[in-house]
């Protein structure tokens, strides 16, 4: 039997590739993290990336937040009105947005927008030898390219999520008050009555972790891209897919850490 078609050989090769990838990502993460905490820091690059990741993602995250809040209010009303539990809608909206939907939806949107952009930019630098050129100019690519992106993403995402939370709750409020005939003051009172600091803080912690992971995947796949335009294309796809999956996995892990009693 041809070894390349042997299912056991294929399984073994797949397993070895998986181990190799995990090892490579671990080394990449450790090296990147070490440069995030060791001077010199490229402050202007961190600010530039913060603008790129945070400011320019505001429209897409804001739109996601407002429509998520609006739909959540509508759907909650559909279900809760059957049990005469309409008064729970403000609490459901605010808790869902701050704990889950805000960070997860913002994370997924940023994974698509920023993760892809980072992978494409760094991947193009790799295939055009710009990363090699950095090394020959006595500049560590991890310090110059990777660390500023990781720091900027981990700082920007919590701010984006905070804004998404506010806009999301506003979306729920607008639908509830103007379409579902809720009393404005009662809605707001119910919203803040059930909201606790930990609800918001857990969402912001998630956002910082998601930001780091999205940037890490974008940088990792770009840094190791090979083979010209096709390689950069694959790196971009892999960055978005792996970033989105990690957001969902770590969302569960952090939720478990914060709220499982």
């Amino acid at each position: 039997m041809n070894l390349s078609n042997n299912p056991i050989a294929l399984l073994g090769r797949g397993f070895l590739n998986l181990i190799q990838t995990i090892g490579r990502i671990s080394i990449f993460t450790a090296e990147s993290l070490s440069h995030c905490f060791r001077p010199p820091f490229y402050t202007h690059l961190i600010l530039k990336q913060t603008l790129e990741i945070g400011y320019y993602s505001l429209p897409v995250v804001g739109l996601t937040g407002i429509f998520a809040g609006m739909v959540l209010a509508l759907q909650s009303y559909t279900g809760f009105s059957r049990f005469a539990a309409d008064s729970a809608i403000p609490a459901v909206v605010v808790l869902s947005i701050t704990r889950e939907l805000g960070p997860v939806l913002a994370g997924l949107m940023v994974a698509g927008r920023v993760g892809a952009s980072m992978a494409a930019e760094i991947g193009t630098m790799r295939v055009t030898e710009q990363i090699d050129a950095l090394s020959t100019l006595s500049t560590n690519p991890f310090k110059y390219l990777i660390a500023p992106r990781l720091i900027a993403a981990a700082i920007s995402l919590p701010f984006l999520v905070l804004i998404a939370d506010i806009i999301g709750v506003l979306g729920g409020y607008l639908v509830s008050v103007h379409k579902l005939d809720f009393n404005s003051q009662a809605y707001l009172a119910n919203t803040f009555e059930f909201l606790e600091v930990m609800d918001v803080v857990s969402g912001l912690v998630k956002a910082a972790v998601f930001g780091f992971l999205i940037a890490l995947m974008g940088c990792y796949h770009g840094f190791y891209s090979r083979g010209g335009a096709q390689g950069v294309g694959s790196a971009t796809t892999n960055a978005v897919v792996s970033g989105a999956i990690l957001v969902l996995i770590f969302n569960y892990i952090i939720t478990e850490a914060f709220f499982s009693q």
Partner: peptide
């Protein structure tokens, strides 16, 4: 590396 200078085949300028 300060001792080295390098001209890359494709120039490798930072865009």
């Amino acid at each position: 590396m300060h001792k080295f200078g390098m001209l890359f085949q494709g120039a490798a300028l930072f865009d």
